[in-house]
Design a protein around this nucleic acid. Structure first.
Lengths: 112, 112
DNA sequence: TTGACACGATACCAAAAGGTTTCATATTAA
DNA sequence: TTAATATGAAACCTTTTGGTATCGTGTCAA
């Protein structure tokens, strides 16, 4: 399962884009509204929004002459899935450690 | 809380580095062993390992003339923390939706 | 002691990324 | 209809990034 999480991970790598995502959780915004919140050109912000959209993390919906951007929860699934691999890894390592300690304790008890 | 997750997110943005992390969950490896698994120079792989180390996702421990690299679970905390913000966001949105639907149902029931 | 080995570090290169400026186009409001 | 508004898109620039090649250094083994 070599799902293409690359665009999503790529999108999260930039602090401005992560900030945009957080702000969009408060309310949906037009491209202009998003741009007003940053000290950079509207064109630059729009590029970031395109990257976020390519990563599936936001949707951009034309509404008249404006474009409404909103966070897309589904886009985070690839990220979560990839990370869950490691969560399972930690869990099993912890289980092994736990088992080892318990066995060690039993061993000590038998020694006494 | 503007914790510095930037190095960690940066480290995850490259597919080679994510692959390295996955391979290191199977077993710890020296720099040379990691490099042998990729069709690029040892120097290139070492750069990736440095980025991963800067992101706190791996530790590099000198052992004689070798350097053992291993995944560091603690380094994933900033990532998980940042994502949990959105998980909460989804949860509350789902709750709101659920509540809204329930109220709507009650409303309909009253109308009938 | 002397190679062979594993790594560090530097210089260098091409491509990608982040940003600006400029101009074009479609909508809306007056 | 016309002017202001919101966005699209292209050209251009600088910095990062991912990669190579090269040389230096510490460590181990014969």
């Amino acid at each position: 399962m070599t799902s293409s999480q690359q665009p999503a991970f790529r999108a999260l790598a930039d602090p401005t884009r992560r900030e945009i995502l957080q702000r969009l959780t408060h309310r949906n915004m037009t491209i202009g509204e998003v741009a007003d919140g940053f000290e950079m050109t509207r064109a630059a912000v729009k590029k970031h929004l395109t990257v976020l959209s390519d990563g599936g993390l936001i949707t951009m919906t034309p509404k008249g002459r404006e474009v409404v951007t909103q966070v897309d929860p589904l886009g985070f699934a690839p990220i979560r899935d990839w990370l869950s691999f490691f969560e399972h890894f930690w869990d099993s390592r912890l289980d092994s450690l736990k088992t080892a300690i318990e066995q060690e304790n039993n061993h000590d008890a038998n020694d006494q």
